[in-house]
Design a protein around this nucleic acid. Sequence first.
DNA 1: CAACTAGGTCACTAGGTCAG
DNA 2: CTGACCTAGTGACCTAGTTG
Lengths: 441, 441
Amino acid sequence: MAGCFSIDEYDNFWQSVIENALQLDHSPNNSSQFDIDNNSNAVPENKENQNSDWNYTTNQYTPYLVNRCPFNSAPVPALSCRSVSSNESQITTPHEVHPYAPGTNMLSPKNSYSFHSAPVTASRGSFIASTGNHFAPQTIYHHTPRPNIFGQMNRNSIQSAEFSAPDEYDNFWQSVIENALQLEDSPSNSLQFDFNNNSNVIPENNENRNNDWIHMTNQDAPCLVNGCPFYTAPVPALSCGSVSSNDSQSDPPHEVHPYAPGTNILSHVNRYSFYSAPVTASSGSSIPSTGNHTAPQSIYHHTRRSNIFGQMNRNSIRSAEFSAQAQIETIPCKVCGDKSSGVHYGAISCEGCKAFFKRSQPSITKYRCLRGKSCSVDRTTRTRCQYCRLKRCLESGMSRDAMKLGRTSKKQREKIEEEMRFHKVQLRGNEQTSNFFTCSN
Amino acid sequence: MAGCFSIDEYDNFWQSVIENALQLDHSPNNSSQFDIDNNSNAVPENKENQNSDWNYTTNQYTPYLVNRCPFNSAPVPALSCRSVSSNESQITTPHEVHPYAPGTNMLSPKNSYSFHSAPVTASRGSFIASTGNHFAPQTIYHHTPRPNIFGQMNRNSIQSAEFSAPDEYDNFWQSVIENALQLEDSPSNSLQFDFNNNSNVIPENNENRNNDWIHMTNQDAPCLVNGCPFYTAPVPALSCGSVSSNDSQSDPPHEVHPYAPGTNILSHVNRYSFYSAPVTASSGSSIPSTGNHTAPQSIYHHTRRSNIFGQMNRNSIRSAEFSAQAQIETIPCKVCGDKSSGVHYGAISCEGCKAFFKRSQPSITKYRCLRGKSCSVDRTTRTRCQYCRLKRCLESGMSRDAMKLGRTSKKQREKIEEEMRFHKVQLRGNEQTSNFFTCSN
DNA sequence: CAACTAGGTCACTAGGTCAG
DNA sequence: CTGACCTAGTGACCTAGTTG
Ligand SMILES: [Zn+2]
Ligand SMILES: [Zn+2]
Ligand SMILES: [Zn+2]
Ligand SMILES: [Zn+2]
């Protein structure tokens, strides 16, 4: 069993896997779809040159700027095999791009459809503060390119374009990966990826100190992006480099295998993301070192994984990634049914209703209903009748006297969790939110 | 030549400058304009008391709440000498406020016309996370007061009210400052402000590595707020306190002279603002240390300056500071292509289309197309066919249910900024937008 | 402490207004 | 009828401060 893979070794392994795959007869690049020279479907040069953003980046003849991407050698599809919906502001005539083609943001979060802001990185081996990687993920640059393809599309289009790739293409690469994982010299068969016999992971008791971490560091389900070829590949469990521990570290952290599943190498990394990310367990101390490393590898693991969601706050990360731990936000606003943000003035309510109730305090009388005092109050209609909105607030039990400060007590928490469970079921069970929120009338 | 000014020394210097100036015969406070006792133009007491915002804050008899402001002893004008435009929602009868009078927001950015956001600070010497100052600039509190004076005025009015002060008043204080700068014991004559012989500034080659920094750290034009009496005063180049170095520091950073030009003491500081700001030049290294400080003072200088614009990304900062700012208006109306004014009924649209859609609400059917229901709808033709205009509105997604109120969320903002960038490029690229957006029949 | 929320801010827009 | 201009709300986001 192999020991510890260096980044180069890891790279080389996957690189050769790809290269071998490209030789196969049934490889996509041997199809006419990828025959760029005989393809009129490519972005015309003159089009590209009209837009400086496109200049050197979307040139389909030199698609990959970076040599660390596993798709480095995979061909760019030039031939459209299905149509992509587009809107009026799309730069060129819409043309098909394979979701996993280099230059596309396969792994990127749905909401990071812009790469214009992606840091243009330096050369390999440099340190990029914004990502916290010692080895700058040059793939970021790699992915700077094609924003315009999706840039002006709406989310839904992006999503489908990204993730509902033609099966053939998907399956081909998926099987390439899967076969590779069987190889004896695969990283997955190395000690480094052997979680069961690895003392390098965060000790449970540490994890448990911070709820935020519990699921994030679950190393058994490394990649969250369904459809990613690395979805099933293992996360490295054994760190090769040393890590400094806190969330604001400025020194080069340890190496993280850029393609390790669970790390979202391809995503646009928001510079602010993690400095505010949840951190250490113990107060003032650094994270307990594991072996001769100062930080648990999984912190990095976490950090990288958060990338998937870009700049989110803790709660969002937690719920978005794992939604295992129920959040109060799953319970809709008792007044209008919008997403709640906690217990305000005694009722689970949204930011809007909270602020509305606050503003309404002094004079309940000043509002007047122009209809029958039974206007509907939901997310879209809530602003149409102040009287009825305030009525709903009061009916929901909002009151200045009911203000809740400080922590949620265990009893409260229990009650809330019960309700959350109910709403989860509701959500899964057919989105029929019904009139649960209509506790009044 | 004096050495390093402490904050107290810096304060005291300016305090005494002001105090001396107030003794001068031609000082404003010796004019009848500032004779509050014999002045009927002041805010009437009963008015003040009507609005809790005014209560204790705008009491003109005790105008300064803080003793660190250089204008602490400067009088509040009570007598109007020119008129201020006002609108009906203004709380009191409009009355003149001298732009540099205490209680006015002389130093505030033009777009911070509300001070509701100014953090109400603690006592001197405490640490305020939000500003990153060890010595909390209490003047923030000081300047919280008079929002209502300008509160409901539009930007233009504010701007003129703030910055086009009566010349006499301006000139008086300007010359006071200028004279003070000539004094031997002025901070400007101290080593601390001597940029030419100061190794503590960022070396040029470092600055130049990152274009973004070039202008920001230009120490020759320290204060951006035209009209500020410190406009011409120097920025300290030599740090007196120690600074921890990285961009995500959590410890109290060094002291920054609260009144140092370039520091925007009055602005509301968003906590995340700068931790991400300085992206270092050199690979793998932390921010170049300066002397025995770990961070270059000018980064702080920059940092502070960014405050003016709150939490913006690099590009925004740059453009906001040094050129006209990028606004949503760069994105044309989705209906007619005219200049948009925001998101109305769910679509980026112009004032005209907004109002048109509003008027069209009650009777959606009443319009009729006299041609083939495919009339062109642009800036000039939009009024020719109501039917087709409304059709375009609906196609653009305008709907009463899509109303967006309140602030733009970060995600929305990101999307908008992406589109703005796109349209900027289009604009630069020869304005031949032609019928680009009309690609879908 | 860590987990919460009241309250504050202020960037935004619906809807009103009124001169063309 | 149109649309430039204005303001009362609105609500996303933040932080001080409270509580278990
Ligand atoms: Zn609500
Ligand atoms: Zn009603
Ligand atoms: Zn329009
Ligand atoms: Zn028509």
